[in-house]
Structures are given as C-alpha cells and as structure tokens.
C-alpha cells in the first residue's frame, strides 16, 4: 500500500522550523527598513513550503467563524478525542471506524502539495497523511459505487460559527470515485510531522491538491459511497459560483473574480501575483480523469 505516487518535492524542500523562524526575523528586520522585496530567498522560485504559523493562522473553517483568524482562535473548543468516522452506503464493511483503529492500518507519508483557495490565494503545505484509496479499500467499495460523499463534524456547542446560517450545516463535500481513488488524494492527519491542528481539520481531513481548497473538507465524521452525485455545501449555497468539480482552472473565472493568477501567502505586502497553473500544477497526473469533458461547463 501507499507510495504509488512519486513526490516531486522532497524532505529537502521542507524548511526546518528553526530556519523559517530565522527567516521571519530576517524579513521583519529588512521590512522595517523597506527592503522586504529583496529578502525572498532563491528557494521561493518554486515551491517553498509555507511556515507553520502561516498554515495554522490563516484558515477558512466557517464552523468557527468567517474571519481568517477565527479558526485558530476558536477551534480548540472542538473535541477530537475520541473520534469515529462513519463509513456507510455502498461498502462491504459499513460501520463506525475509530480514528486510532484507522491509523493503525494506514501508512502515513509526507506529501508536499500546492494548496489553492478559490479566493485566489495559495500556499504550499507539507502534509502527512495516507491515501484515501487505502481507507476506502478498508471499508470495501461495492460495485456500482460512483461517488463519495463527506461530512464535517457538526457540534454547535463546540463550533461558535454554526450559530449563523453562513452555509447549511453540517458541511458536505463530494468526489467522483475515480477522483477519490486517485493516488494524489489523501486524508491528512499531520502538518510538518506534527498532528494536524484543529483549525486545519483535526484529526483528519481530505486533501485534493488539484481542486480549490474548499473541496478538501475538514474534520471528517462521515464518508458515504453512493451511485449519485452527492450534494455539496458551497454548491448548494451558490451553484453558479461553486461547481461540484471545482478543479483549479486559470481559464474559468469565478463569477466575482479571475482565477488566472493567485497571491502566494507569506510574500508580504508587495508580493507579486503568480499565474495559476492548470489543475494547480497537477495536470500530468489528473487531466486524464476529465478527458472529453467541457471544463467550462463542469466547473
């Protein structure tokens, strides 16, 4: 199991914590004298992972509020132990799977992925996790299953943001089965080798690196195999703006903003926008999944 996909980023690309802390000081010092623009190291050319602070302080997790800092402030209220994932629908072994039980069966590896939010900002995140395919195989996907639906925990007393009807709770997401089984699709349980913080979707969340971030549903409590396209929260809230597929695509605009370029988080005030890549740079790996489909229609 696992290691079916070869990472083009390696451990060497992960900035050691001490180094990025140093760099922050360095940058802050330079910024003070107005030299921030020359402070970017050459590594930033390609895919330098964002710092722990950036990844864990700037989140969209509307169950804890709509501000980017709200999840970091309130997500500690969420109890993640014990945690069970209900796997049901078209599977051979439906049931409640304990988080520890799942972890004992999975091979955790590191995946350094680009992360592109539908709001046109991006990060690079060194996830730790296992392939979703392995979890689905654990439950045994039945013949005829075509889609996978996911649900986030909905516990209003631990999630202050859910008192507002920003979206329909619980948060729901979905994938086509072939997308779910793709080796790039993982369940992340850690970042930088540490357990994933609550604001990033503890104890386990989906990561589909070629789709907009909101597809990568957090704090999953239910996985349902079906033969029909499952309803998804953002699509229900505004189908014109958020399609079921939501593949990163620089050529298909969000109705309210262009998706042609993105702002890389961590570059400071004067960071240049960079062009957004087709399928977020994973075109070689995933374009085949959508052969013959009109991506402007199935956005």
């Amino acid at each position: 199991m696992a290691h079916r996909w070869k990472n083009d980023l390696t451990q060497a690309d992960v900035t050691p914590e001490a180094a990025y802390l140093n760099r922050r000081h360095f940058m802050a010092g330079l910024a003070g004298v107005g030299l921030a623009s020359i402070a970017k190291p050459a590594l930033a050319e390609g895919l330098e992972p964002n710092s722990w602070e950036e990844i864990t302080s700037y989140n969209n997790f509307y169950e804890f509020g709509t501000g980017k800092g709200d999840p970091a402030e309130y997500a500690h209220l969420m109890k993640t132990d014990p945690w069970t994932i209900k796997i049901d629908g078209m599977v051979d072994r439906p049931g409640d799977y304990g988080f520890d039980q799942v972890m004992s069966e999975m091979t955790v590896e590191e995946r350094i992925y680009r992360f592109r939010c539908v709001e046109a900002w991006s990060m690079v995140i060194p996830w730790n996790g296992f392939e979703l395919a392995d979890l689905l195989n654990l439950a045994g996907v039945q013949e005829g299953a075509k889609y996978v639906g996911f649900e986030t925990l909905y516990r209003p007393e631990e999630m202050p943001g859910t008192q507002y009807p920003v979206l329909e709770w619980p948060y729901k997401e979905g994938l086509r089965l072939d997308e779910a089984m793709h080796p790039l699709t993982i369940m992340a349980t850690g970042i930088y080798g540490k357990p994933i913080p609550n604001q990033n979707g503890a104890p386990l969340r989906l990561v589909v690196p070629w789709k907009y971030g909101f597809k990568s549903i957090k704090s999953i409590v239910r996985i349902t195999l079906t033969d029909k396209e499952p309803p998804t929260s953002w699509n229900q809230a505004n189908g014109r703006e958020y399609g079921f597929y939501s593949n990163v695509n620089p050529e298909v605009s969000h109705p309210r903003w262009s998706q042609a370029s993105e702002r890389k988080i961590g570059g400071g005030l004067f960071a240049k926008r960079v062009p957004t890549l087709m399928f977020n740079g994973y075109e070689n790996e995933v374009a085949g999944l959508y052969e013959g489909m009109d991506l402007a229609k199935f956005y």
Binding site: R24, M27, A28, A31, G32, G34, A36, N50, E53, E54, S57, Y58, K68, G69, W121, R263, I265, G266, G268, L269, A271
Partner: peptide, 16 residues
C-alpha cells in the same frame, strides 16, 4: 496600518 503590514503585524495576508 501600512507600517504594521511591513513589519508583519497584520498577520500572514497583510494585503487583504
């Protein structure tokens, strides 16, 4: 605010 943005006082996305 601009000064805070330059020294990192506005969080990781000072532009927004």
């Amino acid at each position: 605010l601009l000064y805070q943005g330059l020294i990192g006082g506005l969080g990781v996305d000072p532009v927004k």
